[in-house]
Deep mutational scan, measured.
Amino acid sequence: KRPVSAMFIFSEEKRRQLQEERPELSESELTRLLARMWNDLSEKKKAKYKAREAALKAQSER
């Protein structure tokens, strides 16, 4: 099983909040919005998710 990506971790963290704030969005619209949010995120903020990705990857390799 492959470890999850930093973007996937970000998306899972933000998805529920966005669904509550924007219930009119379809699943595909929500996914596009999350992708745009990820792309607009600064490298400094992405680092938090990339660190979690690395930790999960290291854990799965044990």
Rank of each mutant, 00 (worst) to 15 (best):
A58C: 10
R22P: 00
Q59V: 13
R16Y: 10
L34C: 12
A58W: 09
P23S: 04
S28L: 11
K1T: 11
L18K: 02
E20L: 08
A6S: 05
Y49F: 04
E21D: 07
S60Y: 06
R32K: 15
K44V: 13
L41M: 11
K50G: 03
L56C: 06
Q59S: 12
V4I: 14
S5I: 05
E43L: 04
E21M: 10
K1H: 04
R16C: 14
Q59K: 15
R15H: 02
Q19M: 15
R52P: 03
A55C: 13
L34A: 05
F8K: 14
K50H: 12
E29R: 01
K50T: 11
R36N: 13
S26H: 05
D40V: 05
L33N: 08
R62T: 12
A35P: 04
R62H: 11
D40E: 11
Y49N: 00
F10G: 01
E20T: 10
Q17I: 04
S28F: 10
E21R: 09
A47S: 12
E13F: 02
P3V: 13
K44E: 13
W38L: 00
Q59W: 05
A55Y: 06
W38Y: 06
K57S: 14
K45T: 10
L18A: 06
L34T: 09
A54H: 14
Q17T: 13
R52Q: 14
L18S: 01
Q19W: 06
W38S: 01
K57I: 12
F10V: 00
S28Y: 09
A47E: 12
R2V: 12
S11H: 06
A54D: 15
S42R: 01
K46W: 01
Y49P: 01
V4T: 08
K50P: 01
A51I: 06
A35M: 08
E27K: 06
A55G: 12
N39I: 06
K48D: 15
E27M: 02
R2K: 04
R15E: 03
L34D: 00
P23N: 02
I9W: 04
K14H: 15
S60E: 14
Q59L: 11
K48Q: 09
T31V: 07
P3M: 13
Q19S: 13
R62W: 15
R2W: 02
Q17S: 14
A58K: 12
M7I: 06
R22E: 05
L18C: 07
R2T: 07
K57N: 10
K50M: 09
R22A: 06
R22L: 06
A55R: 11
A58S: 11
K45L: 07
A55V: 13
M7W: 05
K57L: 10
E61I: 15
A47I: 05
M37A: 09
Q19F: 03
K1Q: 05
L30V: 13
L25T: 02
M7D: 06
V4R: 04
E20P: 03
A54E: 11
L25Y: 05
M37P: 00
L18F: 09
E53T: 04
R2L: 04
S28D: 15
K57Y: 06
K46R: 10
R32L: 14
S28W: 07
T31E: 11
S5F: 02
M7A: 12
R32S: 15
Q19L: 14
K45E: 15
D40K: 06
A51L: 12
P23Y: 02
K48I: 03
L18P: 00
S5R: 06
A55Q: 13
R2D: 08
R16F: 06
Q19V: 13
K46P: 00
A35F: 05
E29N: 05
R15V: 03
K50V: 12
E43A: 14
R15F: 08
M37Y: 07
A35D: 12
E53M: 06
L30I: 05
